[in-house]
Nucleic acid binder design. Structure first.
Lengths: 115, 115
DNA sequence: TCACTTTATCGTATATTTACGATAAACGAT
DNA sequence: ATCGTTTATCGTAAATATACGATAAAGTGA
């Protein structure tokens, strides 16, 4: 019989998974790229650069805002979206630490116990 | 009126989003950690280490297998899961490149055009 | 005030995800 | 052959995600 199943997930695991979720759609991968590259970040421009309707782009922006990766500055009737540098640095570091640890693991290759 | 909306997503964007999706659940974040650390990788052990039922763990393993991050060696009635080193290196590099480019962007902070 | 622009939200439809119990399949041991 | 162990799959339920048209909200400018 299996031992007691009390172990929950840590805050770190939940946070990293949440960041990954925010980046788990090509549109959001691309939005982050565009916002970091283009010197103009109105929602309307994003809509023309993506194969999606305005309402859908707005939803993706909301998801990126939810985890803090971007923020929007209201500028008259427009909204200027931009990358949140602090959050970007945090997610960069978190993923880097995670992958570094995985790569350092000593059980990466299968040690199939052939008999 | 917006310009033609012909732009699709690139293979790179789709692939990275897919890797992110595979890591978008705390259970799968943790499974990768466990498999890289622990010198024994039976599915049954994973079940005892996670607050989830066996069927659910099996589903999460399937998702990680789908993107190639892990593989399972059948060993009698058991299955020995392990991290796929090549895929891990690829996902590590892909995320690193992505975040590096984002951080290099010249439009990270909002230049709200106040009038 | 009245259009016009821009973006968020609502309503809705569809698909996917997550979770679990039950069962099947595959193997080892007796 | 039968039993116990281990894991995948099936069936199902509930929640979440994705997409879009329509509409609301908020500001600009005539």
């Amino acid at each position: 019989m299996p031992t007691a199943k009390t172990q929950n997930f840590t805050d770190d695991e939940i946070l990293l998974a949440d960041f990954a979720k925010a980046l788990s759609h090509p549109a959001r991968i691309k939005i982050m790229k565009i916002l970091s590259e283009i010197n103009a970040c109105m929602c309307g421009e994003l809509v023309t650069l993506l194969p999606l309707a305005q309402a859908t782009v707005s939803q993706h922006l909301k998801e990126l805002k939810r985890v803090g990766l971007i923020s929007g500055d209201i500028d008259g009737p427009k909204v200027c979206y931009c990358v949140n540098v602090t959050a970007l640095q945090k997610v960069t570091k978190d993923f880097q630490n995670y992958f570094t640890k995985l790569n350092e693991g000593d059980n990466l290759s299968c040690k199939t116990k052939k008999k």
